[in-house]
């Protein structure tokens, strides 16, 4: 795979992760356990939609076929989206959403820190902006994980269960493929093995504070990088893309 192809594919994946998680967080609006959390959640969703727009706009330029950020978001079918499966998991209860966000962001923060140093200037630039946002998110969701893990018996068992339920989606974060390898080689991209080590250490610290037990090693789900999703994804894009699909070519 050549340098440019790797760059385009990598950037689209970043956009896809951001868009899908942004969409899931948008679904949570009006469902927060307290009004202050509504503002926090909306802030996170806005950050993700913003990042998706930056990545997709850049991808459109790279591709050079006249597509727009909206074309990527609204006119691609499921198998063209290459997000990790973790971000498309259902919202569930507050604990599920926090765990999903925590597991992803403890990876994403490290990925962005590495990307801010890569040799693709636009990616580095976007990553440098995004990493500040994600550090703030991560502190917030980590705090919640600790509060709930070391809260009441009920909150503890709920988030322990959330952690157990989401664990099988964490392997995929570090299961690189030829695009990751090419990006690492050609653009001085993140070294996933190093990221994984860092992630494990940071995770263990937070889980200890939260009095939560790290789930046992288990089979890991995957396929997102090949456009193979979980069943939830079809519904997500059907809802998201409806207007553009029903009124092709319309301006909004």
């Amino acid at each position: 795979m050549d340098k440019q192809e790797a760059l385009l594919k990598y950037v689209l994946r970043l956009g896809d992760n951001a868009l899908v998680l942004g969409q899931k967080l948008s679904e949570l609006v009006t469902q927060a356990p307290e009004l202050e959390e509504e503002l926090a959640n909306a802030n996170f969703a806005l950050d993700y939609i913003g990042q998706a727009r930056l990545f997709y706009s850049y991808a459109a330029e790279l591709e050079g076929k006249g597509r727009s950020e909206d074309d990527f978001a609204f006119l691609r079918d499921g198998n063209e989206f290459r997000n990790v499966l973790l971000v498309e998991q259902p919202n569930g209860h507050f604990g599920d959403a926090i765990v999903r966000q925590f597991l992803f962001e403890s990876f994403y923060a490290l990925q962005l820190e590495a990307l801010a140093r890569c040799s693709a200037p636009r990616v580095a630039e976007i990553a440098a902006r995004a990493v500040k946002e994600i550090h703030y998110h991560l502190r917030h969701v980590s705090q919640w994980l600790v509060l709930l893990g070391d809260g009441t018996d009920e909150s503890h068992s709920r988030v322990q269960r959330s952690l157990d339920d989401h664990w099988r989606f964490t392997g995929e974060l570090f299961a690189g493929d030829e695009v990751d390898e090419a990006f690492e080689r050609e653009w001085d991209g993140p070294r996933l093995a190093e990221l994984e080590q860092d992630w494990n250490e940071k995770l263990d610290t937070v889980l200890a504070d939260a009095t939560l037990t790290r789930p046992a090693a288990q089979w890991m789900d995957g396929g997102g990088r090949r456009g193979r999703h979980t069943e939830h994804f079809g519904y997500l894009i059907a809802e998201m893309q409806f207007l553009q699909r029903a009124y092709p070519g319309a301006r909004w």
């Binding site: 469902q31 927060a32 356990p33 507050f94 509060l147 709930l148 070391d150 809260g151 009920e154 909150s155």
Partner: peptide
């Protein structure tokens, strides 16, 4: 519903504090 489903969350945070 949002309020009820958030009860355990608010209780957890308060217990931690």
């Amino acid at each position: 519903k949002a309020h009820d489903e958030g009860a355990w969350v608010r209780a957890g945070a308060k217990a931690y504090a």
